[in-house]
Design a protein around this nucleic acid. Sequence first.
DNA 1: TCTTGATATTTCGATTGTCTAACTATATGT
DNA 2: ACATATAGTTAGACAATCGAAATATCAAGA
Lengths: 156, 156
Amino acid sequence: MDRTDQSLIALRRILRATELYGRDLAKAAGLTAAQFRVLQIIDETGASTPKAIAMRMRVSQATITSLIDRLERQKMIERKRSEIDRRQTDIIITEQGHQTVEHAPDALQQRYVREFERLEEWEQAMLVASLERVAAMLDAHDIDASPVLDTRDIRT
Amino acid sequence: MDRTDQSLIALRRILRATELYGRDLAKAAGLTAAQFRVLQIIDETGASTPKAIAMRMRVSQATITSLIDRLERQKMIERKRSEIDRRQTDIIITEQGHQTVEHAPDALQQRYVREFERLEEWEQAMLVASLERVAAMLDAHDIDASPVLDTRDIRT
DNA sequence: TCTTGATATTTCGATTGTCTAACTATATGT
DNA sequence: ACATATAGTTAGACAATCGAAATATCAAGA
């Protein structure tokens, strides 16, 4: 097997592990995966708008409306009419919502962080360089992507 | 920002790029993402069973039944009662199904492969080592995972 | 062989995520 | 002030997903 195949297999293992884990994580928090992602985005800054979330997740605004409906019913977030532009709705995270994101038992990421930080300096540097290389190869042409660097839920 | 954060951000870029692309890929093939994944799994070996697919994708069998219903209606696969264990249904890919998987315009993977193969030897080796390291950190404890190495649609 | 328990699949009913199109309210430019 | 654009919601549709119940088959033991 050549290196290209090896790299693809490793990539798929990474994708698979994270995807499968994402479901469990959300479930442990009492939410669905999509709801949890929305909550994470809002939690990043404490507030957002449906429009911004929709662009960030690349789904329609209508989808966000229904996700927000559910999160609101669960008291994870609150809707508030924007003062500056009354067409907009500010989505504000509640204390409970913040706690949910904060305390979600993200075992996968925790384990990753733990193991990563046990590595030698040079190895950490190599991994970062490699991952950034791969990321660039994958999303390089994605020029219409969100201008906001995706830093959601960095660190556990 | 420390190296841990940098690696997490790069990982998220990888995850995001592949997830977003997966939707487009399936759509280009005239299927949904879930349907396309099922078809890929069947295409790997030419045939499978609902049970095996469900375990592999970690969804319930009921979900697979409905996905298979749709793929069957589109003549991508055929159902056939197993001869050896008549409780089982063999899911067999049709020529059309195979062609669909084969010719799906997987631009993302094509670009990745193209760029990967342009790299220096040593850099390819570094990427493989790094990706495998990360994969091990992420799915190491996933001992109940499919025993079959996930080689679906290797190479374009 | 007959029974009993396990397994593979499907069916049914429900919830969720997702879309497009239409609608409402607000903003903005001329 | 009017026309047009933008933010959000609503309505109606379909797909993915689940758990529970139903059906058919297998397998092991009395």
